[in-house]
Design a protein around this nucleic acid. Structure first.
Lengths: 234, 234
DNA sequence: CATAAAATTGGAACCTATTCCAATTTTGTC
DNA sequence: GACAAAATTGGAATAGGTTCCAATTTTATG
């Protein structure tokens, strides 16, 4: 004991083979979860299957993660990071445009991999254990939209004095609601795209400056018209 | 077989002692579920406990209901019926007022029995089985709000040509989002009341007639101010 | 009342998530 | 290479939801 170095009592340093091996196992587990999610959905996703796919024992999964939930949380983190990278890479003229581009990017992702997102974003029918996920998903996404709103205020699209937290919360509520409709199978990805943009335009309008308001009003009128036509036919 | 009456092969008629006994058992099961929900929350709600409380065997529960989920669905139905009755009974001057009264009534219900609503409305952290509930809850609630919007159009608060389905969907999305925040514990019931009203006012404003718009704008300004002050302090 | 259909019941059985433990393997350090 | 700490592993054990079944009770009908 007397001769132990500074790391005594702590885990081995990050660079150690041991920690690296753990990291790799965690990655394998998260990837396995991703893939299984796509293949069988959340409902049928068992920890045993995850362990097998990751070539790791069930015990190890519980060693490296607290619960199924926390494995899924990593999956969501990865997905959000990917989304944010795509939004950053998009060639938008201004923040207002970037906001609506982001919605398109999200819709593209969902459309490209519906099984994954349906499985991922929401929870099962009844049972036992689905709220935390919502929360897990919500937090980092709130931060994203609050940042966007703050930027929109800075750029003069939203009035000075608008609280990014308040408007950001509104946006999240809408995106969550529309996402829920899509996941529940109530609406097509096409309607998703229209409804979420309509919702965002509506949520921003009361806080818009004279510069932004006409653009938002035009968006609202166009989307309300399109959606109305669709709901009329349906 | 030859002498059997018209009900052959079918369940006994509704008035029969048999059907009535079944109905009573179903009621006992739903009530037991309600009470247990309040006492222990969803997470700890077991079908065994429900059966015991309802003085029925576990097998009987599964005889009369498909799953835990469908028992919970009945609980939600009852709750919605109660909510609608309260809204109907509220002494509102006009539909616009009735809409915001309904939000207050909902908030009152939640405030009066947070354990029940937290347990009821959303689902658990991770686990297995929570989407259907969302859907179960959503459908009848969409109908409610669509009806309100349609009435608002009829009374001249919202412009003719506004599609109740489209605006109703927006309202549901907002209420679901704010409810989620409250259930997740992110906001107080006080903020809930403010956020949901703000959201509704925002959602209605772009579709409002000249009569309604000033009222909605005033509501938006007031609530944004209040919420902004709160978020600034927090 | 007798008999058949309909429900209820208790219990076994299966599948999950999660925890615990003892045995074993891997890694870090001397 | 030897020794100790750290992880992994397999398997048992607990709990809950759900299904299945055989035995029993209740209800409907003659």
């Amino acid at each position: 004991m007397l001769t132990r170095g500074l790391t005594s009592g702590m885990a081995a340093p990050d660079g150690s083979r041991r920690e690296q091996a753990k990291r790799e196992r965690r990655v394998r587990i998260v990837n396995a979860t991703c893939n299984l999610l796509r293949e069988v959905g959340v409902e049928a996703l068992s920890m045993k299957a995850v362990a097998a796919r990751a070539q790791v024992s069930l015990s190890t999964v519980y060693n490296l993660f607290d619960s199924k939930q926390s494995v899924l949380a990593r999956v969501f983190d990865q997905d959000l990071a990917r989304f944010e990278a795509l939004v950053d890479a998009a060639p938008a003229q201004d923040v207002l445009e970037r906001i609506f581009d982001a919605l398109d990017i999200a819709a593209d992702l969902y459309a490209a991999d519906p099984a994954f997102y349906r499985a991922t974003m929401w929870r099962r029918p009844a049972g036992d254990g689905e709220l935390a996920l919502q929360t897990t998903l919500r937090e980092p996404r709130i931060r994203f939209w609050r940042t966007m709103v703050a930027a929109a205020v800075r750029e003069g699209w939203l009035r000075r004095g608008v609280d990014p937290a308040v408007v950001g919360a509104l946006l999240i509520q809408i995106s969550g609601g529309v996402l829920g409709d899509w996941i529940a199978g109530d609406i097509s990805i096409q309607s998703f795209r229209q409804e979420i943009k309509l919702g965002y335009a509506v949520a921003l309008l009361p806080f818009a400056t004279r510069t932004a308001a006409p653009r938002l009003r035009a968006t609202i009128n166009r989307l309300h018209h399109d959606l109305s036509a669709a709901s009329g036919r349906g």
